Computed example of a mutant assay.
Amino acid sequence: MTVRYSFLAIDEDYQLVDDWFASLKDETTVNDSIDRTVYYFRMMDTKPLPPIEMIDQNKTPLVFIVKPQKRRGTLWTDAEVMFTPTPLKQQFPELDNINKSFAKWLKKFDLVFSRKNELEENWNYFLEAGIQNFDGELYALPKVMAALRSGQYFVSQHAGSQRLETLAKSLRLRGYFVEDDQALSES
């Protein structure tokens, strides 16, 4: 099973995660796009990387980082890091060590949602559109904590346009500004 870590980041906060992976001494190949970054740990693999459509993520030393996205002008999505090899430790012990190091690093930040434990501060009010359905634990990078304290809402990256439209109507009733789809497509 893929090992997943969820976190909230805005603006340059995401760069902290990217910098953490970039600082690793392991030789990697990076594929970066607007919505995700993929790290391929080529020195851990015994065979060359096949064409993209033929990659078996369960047997290849890959880490996917899904970047936070801004939706409706003011809503930020959750982000995640996924170590895809299954089973991880048996296939790639070095990558499993990186996984454990990353988990330890991420836990230095504030935990803002957990399905397992009651938290001292409850930020659930600001976690909308299914974010609590997908994330077992959710950490907030530094700028997010300031944003949460000032009333910033966050949504699941999996939320579809209909769900976001319903949420936008609800948030407007609470006095929170959210752009509608049409206004965004015209700009």
Rank of each mutant, 00 (worst) to 15 (best):
D32Y: 02
I34G: 09
I34K: 12
T37C: 06
T37Y: 00
Y39T: 02
D45G: 00
T46G: 15
L49T: 01
L49R: 12
L49F: 13
L49D: 01
L49S: 04
P50D: 03
P51W: 13
E53A: 10
M54H: 08
I55G: 02
D56P: 04
Q57H: 12
N58R: 14
N58C: 07
K59D: 10
K59M: 09
T60D: 00
P61G: 04
P61Q: 04
F64R: 03
F64K: 04
I65V: 15
V66H: 10
V66K: 08
V66A: 14
K67C: 03
K67W: 03
P68G: 03
K70V: 11
K70S: 07
R71K: 14
R72I: 02
G73F: 06
T74K: 02
T74N: 06
T74S: 14
L75P: 04
L75H: 06
W76A: 01
T77A: 04
D78C: 05
D78P: 00
A79V: 01
E80A: 13
E80C: 11
E80L: 11
E80T: 09
E80N: 09
V81T: 02
V81F: 02
M82S: 09
T84D: 08
P85W: 12
T86L: 08
P87T: 06
L88N: 01
L88E: 06
L88C: 01
K89C: 08
K89H: 13
Q90L: 12
E94F: 00
D96K: 09
D96H: 11
N97Y: 09
K100V: 05
K100Q: 13
F102K: 14
F102Y: 11
W105V: 05
W105M: 06
L106N: 11
K107M: 05
D110P: 08
D110R: 09
L111D: 01
V112R: 03
V112G: 03
F113I: 07
F113H: 15
F113V: 07
F113D: 14
F113Q: 07
F113W: 15
K116C: 02
K116P: 00
N117K: 13
E118R: 13
L119A: 06
E120R: 06
N122D: 15
N124C: 10
Y125C: 09
E128D: 10
E128K: 13
A129I: 03
A129Q: 05
G130F: 05
I131F: 02
N133W: 10
F134C: 11
L138H: 01
A140Y: 01
A140C: 07
L141K: 04
L141A: 04
P142S: 11
K143H: 11
K143I: 02
V144P: 05
V144E: 08
A146F: 08
A147R: 05
L148K: 11
L148P: 10
L148G: 01
R149G: 07
R149S: 11
S150P: 01
Y153A: 04
Y153S: 04
F154N: 11
F154M: 05
V155Y: 02
V155F: 06
S156L: 09
Q157C: 08
H158V: 13
H158S: 13
A159M: 10
A159F: 03
A159T: 01
G160N: 12
G160Q: 07
S161E: 15
S161P: 13
Q162H: 15
R163D: 14
L164V: 05
E165Q: 15
E165Y: 12
E165G: 13
E165H: 15
L167N: 10
K169M: 05
S170T: 06
R174T: 01
